[in-house]
Amino acid sequence: MNTAVVRLIAGRIVIAILTLLFVSLAVFVGTEILPGDVAQAVLGQNATPEAVAGLRHALHLDQPAYIRYFLWLGSLLSGDPGRSLVNGLPVATLIASRLPNSLMLAFVTAVICVPIALMLGILSAVWRGSRFDRAVSFVTMSIISVPEFMIATLLVIVFAVNLRWFPALSYAAGKVSLDQFFRLFALPVLTLTCVMIAQMMRMTRAAVIDTLRSSYVEMAVLKGASPIRVVLTHALPNAIGPIANIVALNLSFLLGGAIIVEVIFNYPGLARLLVDAVSTRDMPLVQACVMIFCATYLFLVMLADISGILSNPRLRHR
């Protein structure tokens, strides 16, 4: 560790925080300034003007926008993003009930995906142009090109409808046995796994090929290094930065991009909460959910940036 690295890392953190502030502003503008009176929308067309005015006051809608922004930001930071407009429950409670489910889904998927995807990506890069590479490339390209809902649907037809291995809906209320737990989880995880592996593998392949083209890799070959040694000691250590970025991007996708999967399998995660909130125009809930997703994204990207800085020998040894 030296001062330059510390300064760079501090810079990344500051940039992440500033970006998050910008995002909060964008979210606020997107949800609050746009046309439509929230109070009117909540109470419906038949509400009395007094009731509407009362609600407007309660929601600080009669205040100027910038004051409302700071009020909202303050409440968000204090961990109390208000109450749902639809059912009056605290937004924090609603989120707290869903967040663990989303984290669980993301965790299980990540544990399966990351090693497989990195392995496939590295192998394809090493054997680039081979039959293996072309086959993997075509399959992953097809998966990426197809909407997630189609992959989910396909898996339902195969595993739930035809083979009857797993239930099509993933979540049953109440306690479940370990065996049931795995079967309930299977299809959502499988769907996400397909998509994630495809994306992560292609990005890893490109990053590793990039380092395999360098002169020092050619030099290692001319020193008589075996292909495994070339990859492990020469290519991979220099691909850590890009690979960390790839993993971060995909993990953030897991949390936010799982929308389709959660809806199809009726999985009570955060993303489905957001979709429901959008369809009922429950703004406090939408804002809070979006902020969680964006903050996660920025946090992961920041971690990737920092690991890129730490793995860069130019910065580590000065």
Partner: peptide, 20 residues
């Protein structure tokens, strides 16, 4: 644009559709 890109695409779509 770096800041804008940090909002996941489906998120922004949902927010705008929620509003408009």
């Amino acid at each position: 644009f770096d800041a804008l890109i940090s909002i996941p695409s489906k998120m922004s779509a949902l927010v705008v559709i929620a509003a408009l």
